[in-house]
Simulated assay, not measured.
Amino acid sequence: MTTIGRCSMAAFGLIMTTAACGSSDTPGAGTELPRIDRAPTPENEFTPVELETTVDNLIIKVNEGTVEPMQMVVLLKNLTPFFASIATGASRAMGELEVTGNVLGPTDQSSDTTTSQDIQNQQIRQAVADGVEGIGIAPYGDINGAAMDEAVAEGIPVVTLDGDVPTSKRSLYVGTINKSAGATAGKTLLAMLPPPPGTVIIHGNLGTSWADGYNRTLGAWQVIEAAGYTPLVSEAVFHEDETFDVDSIKSRIEAADPPVIGIVGLFNVSYRCVMGADAAGIPDVPIVAFDFDPKTVEYMREGRIKATHTQRQYYQGYLVPYILYGIKTIGLDGTKEILAPLMDADADSTVNTGIDTVPFDKIDAYDDFLATIGVIQ
């Protein structure tokens, strides 16, 4: 696996080699390792008990057989705070499993997406050439499908996380189910609203080319409309200059009929909903958000954002090495049987890590939870 590190460092940056880092440290094939024995996660009101229990059950099943050495790699889009939490989880799991492997990603998101996609495809192929036995990947999309399928054709299981390529031959997807996540955010806001009629602004995405954003928006739209309110989407703009985004929210609020009585933001820039509401002269409108951006937290502490919804990216990273190891030792079907409590009812290849709903008065409790798993979001 050292070749992967050398190949990727110059172009992409390297985070953490785990456990045995070179081939000379790797036990020979068929060598039985000590039983897997992970330290329990301290309990907190935000601890995902079902998820933690599922990992424990997978370890129990794996320990019934021969625990063998393994090489794997986890490839991320970047190492910004969102993906840094994934890297922490993946590295911890790989250390507990005592596998040989790397977690790789650039320290900065390249402005040239095509170049980043090409490099990720190169990393997949290099990992295959280096004899990797499992690949976890946060893919850019269909552009990675061919390289992923090449790995599968070589007998190497591939598990996606954060984003998915469902048309590929990957074994499983691990992450947020965006339609249900959007519905959850919508329901959080509904509990704060007066009876209909009224318009609810959704800071979301209606472009079907970004399936995750579209599905999250659709989930919120459907629960809001079903409750008798009028949903109105303000398309999120992720440019660093917030002006256009804020002006768009303001114009939607001013044009709404009936008047706006609530706002739900569905992405990490959800804090801009507060700015848009202020610009439109409705500072007291209930607002709920998504993710845990520092500006979102600041507005929560001021009581301006009533709740946010965070993806469990640490657990996405943490699960993937255990799943890859499970596929190697007890097979895909055996692994899926253990993962059944987390599997999406509508997709038998999707592992739902869920989301956390964090009220504005629970920020400190959530920070305490993050401290127990050693991440910052």
Results as ranks from 00 to 15, higher is better:
2 T>G: 02
6 R>Y: 13
6 R>V: 13
11 A>K: 13
21 C>G: 10
22 G>V: 13
22 G>M: 12
23 S>A: 14
25 D>T: 10
31 T>D: 12
34 P>Q: 07
35 R>E: 12
37 D>F: 05
42 P>L: 07
45 E>G: 06
45 E>H: 06
46 F>D: 02
47 T>E: 04
48 P>F: 11
51 L>D: 00
56 D>N: 12
60 I>C: 06
60 I>D: 14
60 I>E: 15
61 K>W: 03
62 V>R: 02
66 T>Y: 12
68 E>F: 07
71 Q>H: 14
72 M>D: 01
73 V>G: 06
78 N>W: 05
80 T>S: 13
81 P>E: 07
87 A>T: 09
89 G>H: 00
90 A>S: 14
91 S>Q: 06
95 G>C: 05
95 G>H: 09
98 E>D: 09
103 V>K: 02
104 L>I: 15
111 S>D: 11
112 D>M: 04
117 Q>T: 08
119 I>V: 15
121 N>C: 13
121 N>H: 04
122 Q>L: 15
123 Q>Y: 07
126 Q>G: 00
129 A>D: 15
136 G>A: 09
137 I>T: 07
140 Y>H: 11
148 M>V: 08
149 D>V: 06
153 A>C: 10
158 V>R: 04
159 V>C: 10
160 T>W: 00
162 D>R: 06
164 D>T: 05
167 T>A: 14
168 S>K: 02
173 Y>C: 02
174 V>K: 03
174 V>M: 04
176 T>V: 14
181 A>K: 00
185 A>P: 00
194 P>A: 07
196 P>Y: 08
200 V>N: 02
202 I>V: 11
203 H>W: 02
207 G>Q: 14
207 G>I: 12
212 D>R: 06
213 G>S: 08
214 Y>P: 00
215 N>F: 04
215 N>K: 08
216 R>K: 12
219 G>T: 05
222 Q>M: 06
225 E>Y: 03
226 A>Y: 09
228 G>T: 11
231 P>T: 09
233 V>I: 14
237 V>M: 08
237 V>F: 02
240 E>H: 10
243 T>H: 07
246 V>T: 10
247 D>G: 12
249 I>Y: 00
251 S>K: 14
255 A>P: 01
256 A>S: 15
258 P>H: 10
260 V>H: 02
283 P>H: 10
284 D>F: 11
287 I>K: 01
287 I>H: 01
293 D>Q: 07
297 V>F: 07
302 E>C: 02
313 Q>I: 05
313 Q>K: 04
317 G>A: 05
322 Y>N: 00
322 Y>D: 00
325 Y>Q: 01
339 L>W: 01
343 M>V: 14
346 D>L: 10
348 D>N: 14
359 P>V: 09
366 Y>K: 03
369 F>C: 03
372 T>L: 11
372 T>Y: 09
375 V>K: 07
377 Q>E: 15
